[in-house]
Amino acid sequence: MEELRSKHLLGIQDLTREEIELIFNTADNFKEVINRPIKKVPSLRDITIANVFFENSTRTRLSFELAEKRLSADVVNFSSSGSSVKKGETLLDTVNNILAMKVDMVVMRHASPGAPHFLARNIQANVVNAGDGTHEHPTQALLDTFSIRSKFGGVEGKKVAIIGDILHSRVALSNIFALNKLGAEVMVCGPATLLPKHIKSLGVKVTLDLREALEWCEVANVLRIQLERQQVKYFPSLREYSLYYGINKQLLDSLNKPITIMHPGPINRGVELNSDVADSEHSIILEQVENGVAVRMAVLYLLASKVK
């Protein structure tokens, strides 16, 4: 595999295993680049990228911006707070105005599932999905699986548990797609109210019991409770959630094996993860962040070769 088939990255669902591996192999090279004294290459010097964020973000946005800058692309940033979106401008109008300023690629985060797909159908520029509602967050899943590959040398056959608010998590869905394609086994774990009804149809194991999930898995990808997407109460209280689904050192020590802990961030310390786990030697949370820049550089590099 020499190149990606599409000029957009909208979701992991559209990628083949070979395409994911191409992104990983390219990311290996960029990981070396970002560890040099001068962490910058000129590949994308004639490309302009707009980061269009209609939803809050720290990590993803910074990570994309750093990736773009380390590839020498020109970058413009847009966030909906403080913009004309508040004055009633439509998504397409907003983006078309940005594109009129000769932008080649758009990295977009939006609260509505499918927003980047709509954009990709309607504009010339390449679109990268940086999270669309509860649907997909492809670059997060790529960096998560890339981190597993870095730690274990491969993803095939690994047992990965995804724990927490599966229902509202685009990270969970993209991770399930990516892990399935790469041949890993996946188990999801959370309170019944936060597990989607037909989640089994994606070929994953399901459990309500945190201990069972931890005893089964080698890697636990722990998710945040997405209170901002919950219009009704799905569980009695955060305290009760933490008692049943929070991971602490005592619990991990009681298992007879080490488990690698991942988290896409932001962490709610003391809810889904205790500090003694988040900061332990089994946690690769900060490696995930480092890998995120390399993986996003790889995605942008491979897609930019399709800019006309």
Partner: peptide, 23 residues
């Protein structure tokens, strides 16, 4: 030393250039 990301023919070819290890 791998020169891929510093080449001047990126986007002038059909497929992206494939990088090798720099060490």
């Amino acid at each position: 030393l791998d020169t891929t990301f510093h080449r001047d023919d990126f986007r002038r070819r059909t497929a992206p250039l494939k990088a090798n290890t720099t060490y």
